[in-house]
């Protein structure tokens, strides 16, 4: 699975938004869900937090896999999604960087904010959660069969692990 981290804190994220923006949160439901950043639940929690802080989230969009371009582009023509994507001024992709690249290409008229950093591939287990086992060399880390905890990798790289908002009172 692809391993991604958050680039920003919640406060840094909203610092890039305006109350006039029409925002779509576009989440993949595969790797990024196991990284505990995206997926249906995390996307909804972020949407609710943004709404409670006065931002206009017009749609929460879930996709089976954001790395598949035709699935992303289908949102431009599908009756259920086309209008929202036409109106959107900002898209927040809770996806890996592959997903971000596809979404940026598919929706050039929206401001697509790169909110995740992809750092390699790894292994999920129910006891350890997601771990990075095969990092990209840019991380400065080597292959590790036990895996690096994402919190450790995030600290090393100046990023964040886990969701933008976990449903609790404090982001």
């Amino acid at each position: 699975m692809i391993i991604s981290l958050r680039r920003f804190s919640y406060d840094d994220l909203v610092g890039q938004l305006s109350k006039d923006d029409k925002i779509i949160i576009f989440t993949c439901n595969v790797c990024i869900k196991f990284c505990d950043i995206g997926g249906r639940t995390r996307a909804h929690q972020l949407a609710e937090k943004l709404r409670s802080d006065g931002y206009n989230v017009i749609r929460e969009e879930n996709i089976g896999a954001a790395c598949i371009l035709d699935l992303v582009e289908k949102r431009k023509t599908d009756a259920a999604t086309a209008k929202a994507f036409e109106e959107a001024t900002v898209i927040l992709p809770l996806t890996c960087e592959d997903g971000f690249d596809n979404i940026s290409y598919a929706f050039p008229n929206a401001k697509v904010i790169s909110v995740t950093k992809t750092v390699g591939i790894g292994v999920f287990s129910t006891d350890k959660g997601m771990t990075l086992t095969v990092p990209f060399e840019t991380t400065g880390l080597g292959i590790n069969i036990d895996g690096y905890p994402l919190s450790e990798v995030a600290e090393k790289l100046g990023c964040y692990a886990g969701p933008y908002f976990d449903g609790n009172a404090k982001p």
């Binding site: 692809i2 790395c67 598949i68 371009l69 035709d70 890996c96 592959d98 690249d101 596809n102 992809t118 591939i121």
Partner: peptide, 8 residues
């Protein structure tokens, strides 16, 4: 490495 795909 990692890829994107397009079924079309």
């Amino acid at each position: 490495g990692i890829v994107i795909a397009d079924k079309r």
